[in-house]
Simulated scan of single mutants.
Amino acid sequence: MNSKPTYPNKTFLITGAAGFIGFFLSKSLLSQDYIIVGIDNLNDYYDVKLKYARLEILSQYHTFTFIKGDISNKQFITDIFEEYKPNIVINLAAQAGVRYSLENPDIYIQSNIIGFYNILEACRYNPVDHLLYASSSSVYGSNKKVPFEESDFVDNPNSLYAATKKSNELMAYTYSNLYKIPATGLRFFTVYGPYGRPDMAYFNFTNQYFKGEPIKIYNNGDIKNDLYRDFTYIEDIIEGIVRLIQVPSKEAIPHRIFNIGNNKPEKLMVFIETLETALSCALGKKVIFAKRFEPIAPGDVSTTYASTNLLQDVVGFIPRTSIEEGLELFAKWYVDHYNMKTKK
């Protein structure tokens, strides 16, 4: 299947365009001359300078329009749809983070529930060819059956963040049923790579190393029964999304959900060792993290593991980037972006 979407002269609306996945998706589509309207509220959940750095790159494309705003503002979303009449909508705006949802639950309801409701309402009154939206592997909770399949029972979320993502899937299904909105949910599995989110473990570990501080590992120091994560490189995530854009469901209820994961869970400690090796290569000197082991945090799960059979069946694609390759690319970017070779 050709990974280029066959949507000539149509407009994409991407929410969360200054975010990690939103940036890479926008860049991929812009490089193929598609018209992108990107919106983002540029909140300070993490360093806003990184969001502006992403936007600076996107602004170099003549078919990119950026509008600062919040999807939880219904009038703002209504006005965007009426003015730009998007054909394909990709909702990536959300308050992310499992642990942060324990401290600041209000923002999750505001952004992930009310915000997504506003997107659905706008699609209801301004019909679109396809709505794609970010869900999460967190909806699987502590499911023991692996790999996780889209048909698995997912009614036992471990965090408010996971509950909001499950709610998004139910809301999208309902609107697809009632108003025949072609909608596709995307269950992402531990996305990593250059320009990533600083709150994610690999990025935070790297920050801590350069601050001269130990990294915190939330597995009780239990190396034998280590945490497993299905780490998925950003470019694989983008390839999966771009291919799925082309195939809105044609079922009576036009709603589907797909895992996008690497289908190869890695031990957290192996991932950390691989990151140390990648940074060693990028810096030209040996890197070893000082480590501090902590109890597993509330809301965390022991394993994430994606079945990608459905994704392969529908679009002929399986993420394949190894953690060695992906972390090498991240480490090189980090060292270059923050000029770490010039700093003592």
Results as ranks from 00 to 15, higher is better:
N2T: 11
Y7D: 01
I14W: 08
I14T: 12
G19T: 03
G19M: 03
I21M: 02
I36T: 13
V37L: 15
G38A: 03
D47F: 07
A53K: 14
A53S: 09
L55A: 07
H62N: 09
T63D: 02
F64R: 12
E82L: 13
K85I: 04
I88M: 09
N91G: 08
N91S: 14
Y100W: 09
Y100Q: 11
S101P: 04
E121R: 12
C123S: 13
S135W: 09
S135P: 15
K144G: 14
S151T: 07
F153D: 13
V154Q: 14
N156E: 10
S159M: 04
A163F: 02
A163M: 06
M171Q: 11
I181K: 12
Y195W: 00
R197V: 00
A201L: 06
Q208M: 06
I217V: 07
Y233W: 05
L244K: 10
Q246P: 10
V247R: 15
P248C: 06
P248A: 05
P254Q: 01
I260A: 03
E276Q: 15
T277D: 02
F293S: 03
E294R: 14
V301H: 12
S302N: 14
A306L: 11
T308P: 14
L310T: 09
Q312R: 12
G316V: 02
I318A: 07
R320M: 09
I323R: 02
H337F: 13
